[in-house]
Design a protein around this nucleic acid. Structure first.
Lengths: 369, 369
DNA sequence: AGCTGTTATGTTTACGTAAACATCCGGTGG
DNA sequence: CCACCGGATGTTTACGTAAACATAACAGCT
């Protein structure tokens, strides 16, 4: 068992580690440790070739005999050589790293998108660096010159409305490509997002088709563009269908806020259908309705947005709009890579459709109301 | 509006670029385009000092006149200078970056921990790179030498049981410090974790104190050490109290699995108290119990683990163990930095207590049973 | 044989930074 | 008045890599 672990942590073999470790202090000659890593020069020396040839092998370039390649690979293995990515980045002028900026990881959507981005990026040979934004006490010293924007990234994906980004006093380095999620800034940036509009329309249509006279809306916070877009689309869909526009009820994405909003809605007898801007708020709404004895879906129908994994376990299982975060993340990476290679357009919006998942939280209104 | 955005994207302002441009092209030598970013040499030239002095200012080193410093800072600003982190990393031999390895971001705990790590790291001047593990199709070419382990990180925090890490064939570079979450490998690694044992004991005690004869356990997947530890602690607490040990019911962390397990438990009349290994499974359990007409907490008491934000909006609001993920993340970063500075011990486990949050899902058993 | 083109390999150089060392300066104490 | 000190600044060098250029070896052709 421990052999496996040793191997994972120190592929170079246990011998080296032990020697340098505790016993090292006992040794008389304190030559300042074995060099941490072997360089190309070391490999070249051992293999009897030039450093450049090692470089070629390392990068899989052509023009190396199979024979030579084998020798170099053997030398690499023996020395436990691994390329120094700092030197590589310096030479190539790129880091092979994408930065992801987001305010918090507290919303499902952000997290799922981030995960998809990380996976897609890895597949393309890129790493992902997380850039937490607006740490309040950044006046830590570290020299009077603390701009944390010496980011080791080639491109940035922003998972937040760009206006928030501006407000967060984040200074993006020039010449860094940007792709944005959750924004309408398609005229200024490259934007990838879920089709909030289409999804919302599907939700509203579904409820109206069931016979509901109109649909109430439990909106997300005003500073989220996704929330704003869903609200707009809800309004448009109702208006288009010639239905009455109920007053807007607003939450902050949290289940708790959904509960508070739900307390208001629960007492309105004329409220038979609610479209919640996300599943968490729908959860809180369900609780409020339940506490007030309004049954879902018999008395009130509820539709959410996101299709979080838990949605199918709500009481009752929630009808909601499934967002394909994986696809959004994938497209973000593709777009940003394309921009880096100057292949793609500078701006424009790509939308990923949302899919309505029917579960048990919707039904026709009571007595055909 | 666009001024704001311009500023964010190109903090140097347009003037600098124009100036550097015009003069450059006016010179007879047609050097290929203006360099994307200004280097120390450029700043030094403009400020009329040596590059070394720029370096000193940039790093906040002493030995620079206030006068000179001002000049250098002005030149930096004019050129929109920002340090090249690749060069810096190469020179210093460190990246100021911590890698975080985790299987997926689908569990609340991992995500919250990651977020805390990112914030703590940022506060210490470190960036966080996400390392997705075991991308199946990594046989993409990129040379025969595709080891993705040329990681640009100084240290690694592993959010998974180390055995899984081994299985994932991740080869950590030597000389990279490691801190592990969710493991019992304190004898081989530095481990930081929530006090699963103490938390579980508190949950079981709470239920027994309410008068329940014994406590059932809805366990997490066997390959999670956190799950395993909670199960062990549950067993220990019951044994210690001299109570009967009900059969174990197992889920996979998901609400859906909690629901399935709940279907079994719901039909057992003798089951009056359940300790679920996480809140999501508790949610599914609540649904199953509800569907079978077993009221919570009147007929069955339920305790969860994690205290996800939604827990207070469950039906009924869930009594659960609050995990201080922020603290876990903070301690991880501290530990890993200490190890890098060779200040801390090589191994050992640090536990962060969990706190029982009482809500409405627990009550004495029906008819004092 | 002599030339040309191709392939394999080596040499030089530069990427931007910061440690180590060198220099310059004004001031202080003998 | 000079030797010396210490603070401010400049110069040299190396970090590890890979592009650009240089060379060598050899095959194919006239």
């Amino acid at each position: 068992m421990e052999t496996v672990d040793d191997a994972a942590v120190n592929p170079g073999g246990p011998a080296a580690a032990t020697a340098g470790d505790g016993r090292g202090t006992a040794a008389p000659a304190p030559r300042r440790r074995t060099r941490a890593t072997a360089s190309m020069a070391d490999v070249a020396r051992l293999a009897g070739v030039s450093a450049q040839t090692v470089s070629r092998v390392s990068n899989g370039y052509p023009g190396v005999t199979e024979e030579t390649r084998r020798q170099v690979l053997a030398a690499m293995k023996e020395l436990g050589y691994r390329p120094n990515s700092a030197a590589r980045a310096l030479k190539r002028g790129e880091f092979r790293t994408i930065g992801v900026i987001t305010f918090s990881l507290s919303t499902t959507g952000n997290v799922r998108t981030l995960e998809a981005i990380a996976n897609s990026a890895a597949r393309e040979g890129y790493a992902v660096t997380l850039l937490p934004v607006a740490v309040p006490t950044q006046d830590e010293v570290r020299g009077a010159f603390t701009r944390l924007e010496e980011l080791a990234v080639d491109a940035v994906i922003v998972i937040m409305e760009v206006h928030l980004l501006d407000a967060a006093t984040v200074q993006l380095p020039p010449h860094v490509q940007v792709v944005v999620v959750d924004s309408d800034a398609g005229d200024r940036y490259t934007v990838v997002d879920t089709d909030q509009h289409g999804g919302t329309r599907a939700a509203v249509r579904h409820l109206l088709d069931l016979g509901h006279r109109t649909v109430w809306h439990l909106a997300g916070p005003g500073d989220s563009f996704a929330a704003q877009r869903r609200t707009d689309a809800w309004r448009a869909a109702l208006t288009e269908a010639g239905r009455e526009l109920p007053p807007l009820v607003r939450g902050d994405w949290s289940a708790e806020s959904g509960y508070r909003a739900g307390l208001e809605l629960a007492v309105r007898e004329d409220c038979t259908a609610v479209f919640a801007a996300n599943d968490q708020m729908a959860l809180g709404l369900l609780r409020a309705l339940h506490e007030h004895g309004r049954r879902v879906p018999e008395d009130v129908s509820v539709v959410g947005f996101d299709d979080i994994p838990e949605a199918s376990s709500f009481l009752p299982p929630l009808t909601t709009l499934h967002q394909d975060f994986a696809e959004v993340g994938r497209l973000c990476v593709q777009a940003v890579l394309r921009k880096m290679r100057q292949e793609g357009p500078e701006r424009g919006t790509t939308l990923v459709p949302a899919r309505l998942v029917l579960r048990e939280s919707t039904a026709p209104p009571p007595s055909g109301r």
